[in-house]
């Protein structure tokens, strides 16, 4: 019985939260890695793209709610998501046209593009801060049902001491992420446009020789990366809450995930997202209760690091990978 309790506790406090957080990171890291593979720079504005896009989704959600549209048990934001993605993609494409294209044509050093992305980050950050009713506040925009499985129900069913909760937002995160990854990989591996993207990422000059239109590839990349970013941001916001600054901070674990997986490697980005999330949760979770179920009594909390240091986990993973395998676990681009 205690073993079962321990398992349920692990599932409830570690596996489920880490899996949904990992899925959100994976979507973010996929965007970062795609942009890196095609445009060849680390996009510092990615966190703020997530924030800006999510703010748009929230506004659309409120609009839909105001005219009485909802999705029943599912959050209305799901319905608003495509509209938010479209609006955000238009903005991102505009930044490419006005900002990045110039440096791409000049074949500028990647670090100049990184610097330009800092400028875009400032602008998107300012726009998010100026969004009516959202700004710098903490906003909750989840509606519909809260739980798929609630603690009480679970305890009643199983008779265990430990409860298990699965929130709708968590289940939704996993389902949406799985769908998004399936669609993305199918697109990259099966479609002509997706293969052209991979070819361009692999060998830009040869792609040009083969008649692949670079501008088209770049546009497609921005749209896909934005769609993934806004989806990740919306799921993260539904799961926790929306606060613009948190989206800036999530940039670090996202970069860590992308680098761990190998920058430019989409499969690696997904794996990296889960590696970072599971490490973060496992290291900052107090294991005292679970240890007690397994027969180890402890005075301490058995917490390796306090939650405030969760970013340190991404950082340490990042450093370890940089030290021992700079191209990432799945061999991304080194240059």
């Amino acid at each position: 019985m205690d073993i079962l309790n321990a398992l349920v506790a692990i599932l409830n406090f570690v596996v489920i939260p880490a899996a949904s957080y990992g899925a959100q990171l994976a979507l973010g890291a996929l965007g970062v890695t795609l942009i890196y593979g095609i445009l060849r720079f680390s996009n510092f504005a990615h966190g703020d793209t997530m924030a800006f896009g999510t703010a748009l989704v929230i506004l659309v959600t409120w609009g839909l709610q105001a005219i009485g549209i909802s999705l029943g048990p599912l959050p209305t934001a799901l319905l608003a998501l495509p509209i938010g993605i479209a609006l955000c993609a238009v903005f991102v494409l505009a930044t490419d046209r006005v900002v990045y294209r110039f440096y791409r044509r000049k074949r500028s050093d990647p670090i100049i593009l990184v610097m330009a992305s800092v400028g875009v980050m400032f602008i998107m950050n300012g726009l998010t801060r100026m969004t009516p009713k959202i700004g710098v506040n903490e906003v909750r925009f989840d509606d519909g049902a809260r739980f798929l499985i609630s603690v009480q129900e679970f305890k009643a069913w199983t008779g265990l001491n430990e409860g298990l909760a699965l929130r709708v937002s968590q289940a939704l995160t996993l389902v949406v992420t799985a769908l998004a990854c399936w669609a993305l990989f199918r697109f990259l591996n099966r479609s002509r446009a997706g293969k052209a993207m991979r070819a361009y990422s692999d060998n830009e000059d040869l792609a040009l020789l083969s008649g692949i239109d670079p501008e088209r590839v770049v546009r497609l990349t921005w749209i896909i990366a934005t769609a993934l970013a806004v989806t990740a941001g919306t799921l993260y916001g539904l799961d926790k809450s929306f606060k613009a600054f948190n989206y800036f901070q999530i940039l670090l674990p996202i970069f860590a995930a992308a680098i761990v997986g190998g920058l430019g490697n989409p499969l690696g980005a997904v794996a990296g997202g889960f590696i970072v999330a599971f490490s973060e949760v496992a290291v900052t979770y107090p294991w005292k209760k679970i240890a007690a179920y397994l027969g180890f009594q402890s005075d301490g909390m058995l917490q390796l690091l306090s939650t405030e240091y969760k970013f340190a986990v991404s950082f340490v993973i990042l450093i370890v990978v940089l030290l021992f395998r700079p191209t990432g676990l799945f061999r991304g681009k080194s240059v």
């Binding site: 293969k195 083969s210 692949i212």
Partner: peptide, 30 residues
Amino acid sequence: VRKGMGFVPQTHNIFPTMTVEENLEMGAYI
């Protein structure tokens, strides 16, 4: 290329993370 020239560069002349078949498909992109 569209006029009928084919060029094989000395180095970096394949797409390394794509399959042989995909390399050929990319050759036929136009």
